[in-house]
Design a binder for these strands. Structure first.
Lengths: 217, 217
DNA sequence: CGTATAATTAGACGAGCGTACAGTCAAACG
DNA sequence: CGTTTGACTGTACGCTCGTCTAATTATACG
């Protein structure tokens, strides 16, 4: 056809992932995005049309990556093993994109339309997988019968919330650097995430303190 | 002296109190503030100099009102009565300025420097009063001996959090108007606030389920 | 009355923003 | 080869933003 593409759209989205956590959607500047990506301003309009469309694709890309992994984990293994794996996927995802996700939540709280619309459109899809796994576990008698929404809130909060706190500490130096770094490392490692998934499963287990957990440690 | 003042600064601050909850500090526009106040744009610079100074005075005014009432309540009556009164003052304040306070918290979460600086500078002063009352109650044996920070988090959360939720519902029509309106009314009345103050005191009472509460119902 | 003075007005400045568009370049194809 | 085509560039438009200044108004005082 014509000139070879440098995949400028990919570069811009990468810059977006880097800048969005600092500013939120409203604070993003297409000029700064282009500058960060080392790309001409005009390319922005060429590839994305409008800033809204860029933000939409930025968020969607983030989410689709996660969702593919989540479904993969959710379909593997029987019983609560799939749930454990799915929780680990969620945990690692929350860790790897904690700054971006935290800003997304803040945007939504603040009433930013893009963020609110995105969460409305996608969160159900994603929580639905976890909910289904929990209900499977309850049906098999491995998990206590609690209200699904309650169980959902519990596992989501127990897995993800610590990572947002860790990201807060790391990003904004609310604590002394050393302390924040150590804390973040302690609660953000793959092992720590897996451990929290076990905690959560134990908390939901049919027979308290025994049951579902401790299978693959 | 000269021309009579229309107290334009007061009008602008009033407009600020109305617009700040919708936009946060970053989203405030001095032009829209002036328009809302029915005032010439130039008056903004004449009375406040910069937007930052305006926001500073807006937040400080809000806080000073509350603090005066809080100290008054805290100094009246012995024992836990003063604590109960102070909690009611906090509750009514959180209700009457819930939208503004919620946005202030969101701004702080988002890293907005003005909001963060304001909270850093003032929250200790204000929580200090409650903390002192709690420690008094513990010293007199009327309140259980918990870590002060823990007790503080408990009472602050139990009094204020429901009001932020109510404000959210009211402001953004997250639920059907009827439902949200009824809910907000149920948890935002003076009586409901006083009841939650009693709940909180009972939760901290030295002898569970009896003690500190139920005095003035 | 006339003047000093504080309050108020209208307008302009430069900067940043999102967006748009005419032109340039290099590879692909007949 | 020449032309087509898609990727890329430079620049400009119109808007809103925070800030600032010179001129105007209306009051109070000597």
């Amino acid at each position: 056809m014509a000139r070879p593409s440098r995949n400028v759209d990919v570069l811009l989205l990468k810059a977006g992932r880097e800048l969005f956590p600092q500013t939120g959607a409203a604070g993003l500047s297409v000029r700064k995005l282009a500058e960060r990506a080392g790309v001409n301003l005009g390319m922005f309009h060429y590839h994305f049309g409008t800033k809204d469309e860029f933000v939409r694709r930025l968020l969607q890309q983030l989410y689709d990556d996660m969702f593919a992994n989540l479904e993969l984990a959710a379909s593997g293994g029987p019983g609560v093993d799939a749930l454990r794996a799915a929780l680990c996927v969620l945990g690692r995802f929350a860790r790897d994109h904690a700054s971006l996700l935290r800003r997304l939540l803040i945007d939504a709280l603040a009433g930013e339309p893009q963020a609110a619309a995105f969460l409305r459109a996608n969160v159900h899809r994603h929580l639905g997988v976890i909910r289904r796994l929990i209900e499977d576990g309850q049906r098999e008698g491995l998990l206590r019968k609690t209200a699904p929404a309650q169980a959902l809130a519990f596992v989501a909060g127990s897995i993800a919330a610590p990572l947002f706190v860790a990201a807060s500490l790391r990003d904004r130096a609310l604590a002394k650097p050393g302390v924040a770094g150590r804390f973040a490392k302690e609660i953000a490692s793959d092992a720590a995430i897996a451990e929290r998934a076990d905690f959560a499963l134990a908390g939901l287990a049919a027979t308290p303190a025994r049951a579902a957990g401790r299978r693959n440690r």
